[in-house]
Simulated scan of single mutants.
Amino acid sequence: MITQPKFAVLHVADQARALEFFSGTLGFEVLTDAPYGEGARWIEVRPPGARTYLVLAAQDPELTEQIRLRRGPMSTVWFDSDDLDATFAELSAKGVSFPVEPQAAPWDPGGSTRWAQFADPEGNLYGISAQGG
């Protein structure tokens, strides 16, 4: 039986820049940073205490852009927040771009979910949401 997601792979053009964003700016823990293939690294990061982690996988910048154009503006990775407004304020102060600022989630007719969307330095989008605030 499947119990939970283990990791999600994020394809990035610049692994060093992605690692700095996730560990330095977002404060994620670095679980692994090891050579992997020719000129690449196997990098695993996660929010402190989280069980699921992200793999920052090297990918050709042109292919990364083609995938982004096909995918459109939808986030492929979402994070939970215990306080969306505080998270928004903290990350905005660190220079993180929020194309969608905190607001009521249109998919929650009960109105208890709020969400926002932020971007990494490569333009990848991430959703973040919180229940009841």
Rank of each mutant, 00 (worst) to 15 (best):
A104E: 10
Q103D: 10
Q59E: 14
G123Y: 06
R68I: 03
P106K: 09
S112G: 13
A58W: 12
D82L: 05
F28P: 10
L91Q: 06
A50I: 01
M74D: 14
S97W: 09
D60N: 15
F28Q: 07
G49R: 03
P121R: 01
F28A: 11
Y36G: 10
L54P: 00
S81H: 01
Q66C: 14
P102H: 04
E101A: 14
G39N: 08
F88A: 07
V77E: 00
G24E: 07
D120I: 08
A93I: 04
F98Y: 07
D33G: 10
I67M: 12
P47F: 00
I67W: 11
R70V: 13
S92E: 12
G123T: 11
Y53H: 10
W115H: 13
A86C: 05
A34R: 11
F79N: 01
A50L: 01
T87E: 11
E65G: 12
W78L: 06
L91V: 02
G49Y: 02
V45R: 00
F98D: 03
E38V: 03
Y53M: 08
P99C: 06
G49V: 03
F28R: 09
R51H: 08
T25K: 04
E38T: 07
G39W: 04
R41H: 15
K94F: 07
G37T: 08
G123E: 10
T87P: 05
I43A: 00
E122A: 12
A104Q: 11
P99F: 07
T87A: 12
T52E: 01
K94R: 13
G27A: 11
D60H: 12
I43W: 00
E101S: 10
D80L: 10
P35C: 03
V45N: 06
G37K: 03
S81Y: 00
A93H: 07
Y53V: 04
S92D: 08
E44R: 07
R71I: 05
V100W: 04
E44G: 06
T52M: 01
P47Q: 05
W78I: 02
E65Q: 15
G39T: 11
Q103N: 13
A34N: 07
F118N: 06
Y53A: 07
D80V: 05
D108P: 11
S92M: 04
A116N: 05
D108L: 07
P73Y: 07
P48K: 13
G72M: 09
P99L: 05
V77R: 00
V96Q: 01
T52G: 02
F28K: 06
L56W: 05
T32I: 15
S112H: 15
E62Q: 15
V55H: 02
D82P: 07
S81F: 00
D108V: 11
P48Y: 02
G49M: 03
E38M: 03
D82G: 11
W107D: 14
R71N: 12
W78M: 10
E62S: 15
T52W: 00
V30C: 12
R70L: 14
T32G: 04
F79Y: 05
Q103M: 15
G123V: 09
